[in-house]
Amino acid sequence: MTAVAEPTSAAAPTGRRPIPARVIGLVVAAAVLVVVAVASVMVGAKEIPVGTVFDAFLNFDPTNNDHLFVRLERMPRTVIGLLAGAALGLAGTIMQALARNPLADPGILGVNAGAALFIVVGINFFSLTALTGYVWFGFIGAALASALVYGVSSLGREGATPIKLALAGAAANAAFVSLTTGVLLTSTDAFEQFRFWQVGSLAGRNWDVVTSVLPFIVVGILIAMFSGGLLNTLTLGDDMAKALGQNVARARVVSGVAVVLLCGAATAAVGPIAFVGLAVPQVARMITGPDNRWLLPYSLLLAPILVVGADVVGRVIARPGEVQVGILTAAIGAPIFIALVRGRKVAQL
């Protein structure tokens, strides 16, 4: 397992060098993201000529159905995909750093399951049908799940050590999934609604959904982007972090708040899209190495590429129907992920 040293990791803090590869990578990722986002507005199950799409922005005609479709369907859908993707990627990166476990992600640590449980309860007992209603239930569920996991694992002298976080998360996940399944098996109607939310989908998301989750995700992204240094010291281990003068408990709480905001809002908006939070940080880590100050911006760009890209593919391959984005993020992401894992020396945390 002696891999050749990656050129990217050679970026020494000496200043006068050619632009570091990691910066170029970031620019390339941003460019790809723009392309994917544009494609998401341009193409879809309904065929609309490119010129008409441009007109929808430049010469908007409120009586033209195609224009309305672009503005009221494809735009919010793309925006929600970008937001949810960024949120999931960042949340996964933070959770992996906090739990010092590459398996940590909102899915495995119970946050998505908490959101799902509350939404099922909402559907079943409060006759919830609208997506904007899901948002609040999902949000409360994610927040409570995170609080429970963090609370249990931070009891005791050493506070929330990585192994306790991982176990508490897995246990909470198990409990929530069991309860959710229990509710679903008693009601065919709830199951019928839930199974389409549960795969994760961007279809039918309108501007109301965007505005209800936007503030949370923006705040979450801001906290996340500034927590790279904190996470780096946490990754060194509690003792080392303390020795460096880091307030470990406060650093954990700050990044924990970011996770709740990001996961809660994303899951509520698009359903529990699995795998993005797990895989994107891994891929980013292969590019950047373990430095969280680079990992976070890479995850911020790579995750929405995967989510929005998968959504575009899903709209095109099954015309006139579509395949849900949650199915395709895994179907597209997993082979790429496996190839990367196989092909290179995997960066440990």
């Binding site: 891994q282 949650g326 179907a331 992401g333 997993a334 992920f337 894992v341």
Partner: peptide, 16 residues
């Protein structure tokens, strides 16, 4: 470590 990561990838694929 690689076994775990490959397992997760396959698992995600199969879940989808």
């Amino acid at each position: 470590y690689r076994l775990i990561l490959v397992g997760i990838g396959l698992s995600a694929l199969l879940l989808s």
